[in-house]
């Protein structure tokens, strides 16, 4: 076998081996971008989109994102959920009939980085009439609507603060 062929094969093999390593690293890149980051339109929009490296994604569309089962959009119904206190202050989630889970578990809709939150703390979902309900999922430190600790699934009045640990969320129009 000629010297040239062997050299080409030798370098070719190293190249293929490294290609495998690089492809493997590409596969695990998803670890770094494992959460979906959605921009809100704001004054700081341009700045933010630069910071996040252009990985802008469409707003989360859940599978059940119809209008709930048979519920029509009532007048005065909330359209978004806003985090008004805590580390996630300013985060909003559009209410599109989907169930929103809150907790420290990384697959929650809103991942709470809060020592007082349980991994699956609470969920917020629309009932048949489109009324939004908050339910505590057996959390350790409880979910508070205004000042009362929730024991049963409770309808959420517009603008009423729901407190989980240090985080406060509200439903707004």
């Amino acid at each position: 076998m000629s010297e040239l062929t062997l050299t080409v094969m030798r370098l070719g093999f190293l190249a293929v081996l490294w290609l495998f390593v690089i492809v493997a690293v590409q596969v695990i890149r998803s670890d770094l971008f494992g959460t979906r980051v959605t921009q809100r339109a704001s004054r700081r929009g341009a700045e933010q989109s630069r910071a996040s490296g252009g990985r802008q994604q469409p707003p989360p569309q859940r599978q059940q994102s119809g209008r709930g089962s048979g519920g029509r959009q009532r007048r005065g119904a909330p359209t978004k959920l806003v985090v008004s206190e805590g580390t996630l202050t300013g985060t909003t989630v559009a209410l599109q009939g989907q169930t929103i889970s809150l907790g420290r578990a990384h697959d929650s809709t809103i991942v709470l980085d809060d020592d007082y939150a349980s991994s699956r703390h609470a969920r917020i979902y629309p009932d048949r009439d489109g009324q939004w309900i908050v339910e505590d999922l057996g959390s350790t430190n409880g979910t508070y609507l205004d000042r009362t600790r929730l024991t049963t699934p409770t309808p959420i009045p517009l603008g009423a603060p729901i407190r989980i640990g240090k985080t406060v969320i509200e439903l707004r129009k």
Partner: peptide
């Protein structure tokens, strides 16, 4: 903080 963080 003007982003929404959800699970992929």
């Amino acid at each position: 903080n003007t982003t929404t963080i959800g699970a992929m």
